[in-house]
Simulated assay, not measured.
Amino acid sequence: MNEACEWTMIPYKRHRKGKHKNGKKPALPCYADCDSVKAYDCTYVYKLVTNLLATKFCQTVIEKMSEAIKFQRQTNQHFRFEEVICYGLGRPTTNTVSAVQLALLKILCSFILKFPKGSQADWTTIKDEIEKDIIASKDNSTSKTKCLLFDPAFSKVDKTLIEDLGFVVMETNELAKRPSQKSLFYMIHCDKWLYNNLLWKNWSSHGIKNCVIVGNSFQTMYEGVPTRIFKEQFKYLYLIVEHSCLREFTLPVWQENDAVFNDTAIIVFNPKSLAKLDFNGTWDSICPVYEDEFL
Rank of each mutant, 00 (worst) to 15 (best):
I213T: 03
D278N: 15
A176C: 13
C42M: 09
R228H: 03
R91A: 07
V241Y: 02
Y290W: 08
G215V: 09
L198E: 09
S143G: 05
K192C: 05
E174A: 13
C86I: 11
A176P: 03
N257H: 11
I107Q: 11
N270C: 11
I10V: 11
A176H: 02
Y31P: 00
A176Q: 02
F167G: 01
I286L: 06
E163Y: 10
K146N: 01
E82K: 08
D284L: 10
I85V: 15
L113R: 13
Q120L: 07
D41H: 06
F150G: 04
N262E: 12
I62N: 06
N196R: 00
A103T: 03
I85K: 15
F111Q: 09
L108N: 03
V61Y: 07
P252L: 05
L237E: 05
C287M: 13
C5R: 13
K56W: 07
Y46F: 14
G18I: 09
C42L: 03
I85P: 05
N95L: 13
N216M: 04
I229R: 08
S217N: 11
G207K: 12
T250C: 08
K56D: 15
I240D: 00
I10K: 10
G118F: 01
G281K: 14
V268D: 07
H189S: 06
S205Y: 02
Y87G: 08
N210K: 14
T94V: 07
A121L: 15
I286G: 04
N173C: 13
K106L: 02
C5L: 09
N95I: 04
L165T: 04
K138R: 11
H78E: 15
M65P: 04
L251G: 09
T50W: 07
I85L: 13
C211T: 07
A265N: 14
I188L: 12
M221C: 07
A39C: 15
T93I: 06
Q72K: 12
C109F: 08
C42Q: 09
S66T: 10
E63V: 07
G88E: 04
F269Y: 12
Q74I: 00
V225H: 00
V260E: 11
G18P: 08
F230L: 00
T50K: 06
M1G: 07
D191V: 01
T124P: 04
V37S: 01
F167R: 01
F167H: 02
K56I: 06
L198W: 10
K56C: 10
